[in-house]
Design a protein around this nucleic acid. Structure first.
Lengths: 256, 256
DNA sequence: AAATAACGGTTCAAATAATGAACCAGCCAA
DNA sequence: TTGGCTGGTTCATTATTTGAACCGTTATTT
């Protein structure tokens, strides 16, 4: 692994539940030597990618990341554009709505709206979603580049529940249905008792760049609710796509 | 320079005006060999810190940065907390209001609200502000740790205009006034014709973690307006500090 | 249309930076 | 005191990074 990759994998040890970690902890979890870990942290701290708490001496993600993320957002105003529509959808469905963006080989959760229910589906910001076993993933694959689809189906596909589809053929069929229907449905493919619908948000070239999804406990979800939500999520994704790409709707007509 | 530092300095070549750069361009600007530049980019792309445009083959900042930045925000809800107050202040002053966070040895602009005026002070998101020659910087130093102040005054201090204070003694005096007054004033210290006021946003330990500032063309700014804005910016900073730290106001009473 | 220049990308011996076992010193609980 | 934990440091060994020269393509320029 490259040194840069090691440094980044240190950053990836932080998450919303454990936003601050000590040196020994980081070394243990990363598998790197303590000296190595520390030198990497110093390099990262020198550029503001991590900060060290003056009191506890623990490390946390730094302001330099926010800076770069905001520069990216200025070019790709994905969040800014999508969040209002995520809110709307959350208000009308009264279920968890989450927004994700593609990164490397997964979807990254970039925004979530939770309903007031005690029994709800919980998704964290920053959470990574696999492509083959979530509604978002299938919706993404339905409009992804061929090479992305191939890379996904070529890898080993984890079965998260008894319902997870892991045969490439079955997943391809699911993608095809999602493409035809305009939205994907995932019935307990990632977690038992959770049913989700999702639609792809598409760039100007017609390929997916992210997704919007509604996730709910299966116990209180009827088939009619799924169909209704599917249309709503599709409409939201379409609206976000249009706002992102100006009015160049015709380029969105591309079929993979 | 460490390999990690090199990789990060590649990321830092991107800004809001040039959010996409080609390989040769990146190599030229960074001073690294083209092969080195490319290997670093591949390592960064592998973790989603940069993305390559499929068409132009140019690189841009990636979604992985947004992911980590959002994890940080979940712990340190600085933006979320401060932006509404920045908007309020922008509405009432009808001048440029910018919010910054400390990083390494500078202030990082994380949010800006511009007024509708054609003649206004323009600040970009991601822009870096020096500590000694801006209202934000002085406000920050006034409530910074001693070692930060020392490190700042020890370095070589650029004179950006004829008005820039570059003697440590003069800067210290300016800091003292800001501390006593509750806000700093910077009269054309960074750019000719621009006058700013700023106040420090403080963490639970009483030390500054960022600033909020109002910047305006000097031509239309009266002394009375400065005094009024100073009080407003101070009040906004105080409100943000309180919201960030719960109601632990007493800890904010610390005097450096 | 030919020539040129600039582009992104690749190779491999040589140079340089990363590595980690062993080492502090400080803190806390038994 | 002991023992075990913490964050942090050192330096000979080792493995990674480096860059001149290379390729094939894609605009420009003549």
């Amino acid at each position: 692994m490259s040194t840069v990759g090691k440094a980044i994998s240190l950053l990836e040890l932080f998450n919303v539940d454990e936003p601050e970690l000590g040196l020994s902890d980081l070394a243990r979890r990363s598998g790197f030597d303590k000296a190595t870990t520390r030198r990497l942290l110093i390099a990262l701290a020198g550029r503001g990618f991590v900060e060290q708490d003056a009191g506890t001496r623990h490390y946390r993600l730094g302001a330099g990341l926010s800076r770069l993320a905001r520069i990216r957002e200025a070019r790709f105003p994905f969040l800014q554009t999508a969040v209002p529509l995520v809110r709307e959808l959350a208000a009308s469905t009264v279920e968890t709505v989450h927004l994700s963006e593609f990164g490397v080989d997964r979807l990254v959760t970039v925004h979530v709206e939770h309903p007031a229910w005690a029994n709800r589906v919980n998704v964290d910001i920053g959470q990574l979603l696999p492509l083959h076993s979530t509604a978002s993933g299938i919706a993404y694959l339905a409009f992804a580049r061929d090479e992305t689809v191939k890379a996904c189906l070529a890898g080993s596909l984890d079965a998260f529940t008894a319902h997870t589809l892991i045969e490439p053929v079955a997943i391809s069929r699911s993608m095809g249905e999602a493409r035809a229907r305009g939205y994907s449905i995932c019935d307990q493919g990632y977690e038992e008792g959770v049913i989700s619908v999702a639609a792809a948000i598409r760039a100007a070239d017609g390929f997916a760049l992210g997704t919007i999804a509604v996730a709910a406990p299966k116990a209180r979800t009827t088939a009619a609710a799924i169909a209704e939500r599917g249309l709503a999520v599709m409409e939201a994704a379409r609206e976000i796509s249009i706002r992102l790409n100006g009015e160049t709707l015709q380029t969105l007509r591309r079929q993979a």
